[in-house]
Amino acid sequence: MNQVLIYAIIAISSIGALSALILFFVAQKFKVIEDPKIDEVADILPGANCGGCGYAGCRNFAEAIVKAGNLDNLNCPVGGNTVLKDIAPVLGIIATERSPQIAVVRCSGSYTNAPKKVEYDGASTCTFANNLFAGESGCPFGCLGLGDCVFSCKFDAIYIDEATGLPVVSNEKCVACGACVKACPRKIIEIRNKNKKDRRIFVSCINQEKGAPAKKNCEVACIGCGKCMKVCTFEAISIDKNLAYIDFEKCTLCRKCVDECPTNAIIELNFPPRKEKAKKEETVNTEL
């Protein structure tokens, strides 16, 4: 019996030793020489592989960072400034602070603002519905509400509000990776600066039709009247194709344009109520 045991031990250990030897030589022969910085950077990155940076995954992004040697034009939307600050010393540079960003849905065509004219019955995908027809409200620019953005979000940061039929972005969960921007067939979602206390002002409409047809489909459509542009003292607002756009880099959140807009197409989020006149209740839902 003992002998069997000994033979077994000898046999198994020699097989093990042999394998280890083979593995060692193979590893030596096929060694890939890689910049160790890539591993260091990849370790710092969040590892979500979301693709928000524009690369296939975190590893690819790490390779790109090390290859570039600097952080210009490269951003990890998930990790944000903290991650970039950690990566900078690996590359031997100093990171510049970037303002945090968030996805913003630029449509307020809820069921009440833009009543349904027809009903859609079919596959629940905006991309197909966009090819099929203008939308239940008739607005050819508005949100279709079928949730391609929800489907694309890897962070569970966006959902469709059943009461309005519009997507809602969570202030806490959104990392501004831009997946929803790519998923939306109508390019309604935009990545904008998050600002202090999540205070944001933006034109919640991308309808490029003239005033009358736009207003016909939706109460709160931007009609391109240009009043906001005139009232803005910082030249942050421009009008193109019957549509106002607020440049978030120039906007100082003064809220003049919000008061001026005749259709309530400009929206302010997370501001305290005004002193003199109570502001009308906003129609857009948001997580506060």
């Binding site: 079919g122 596959a123 995908t125 991309t127 197909f128 090819n131």
Partner: peptide, 13 residues
């Protein structure tokens, strides 16, 4: 199943 809806989507892309 909405087969053709998805096939159309695919054809488009």
């Amino acid at each position: 199943r909405p087969l053709l809806d998805y096939v159309r989507l695919g054809k488009n892309k």
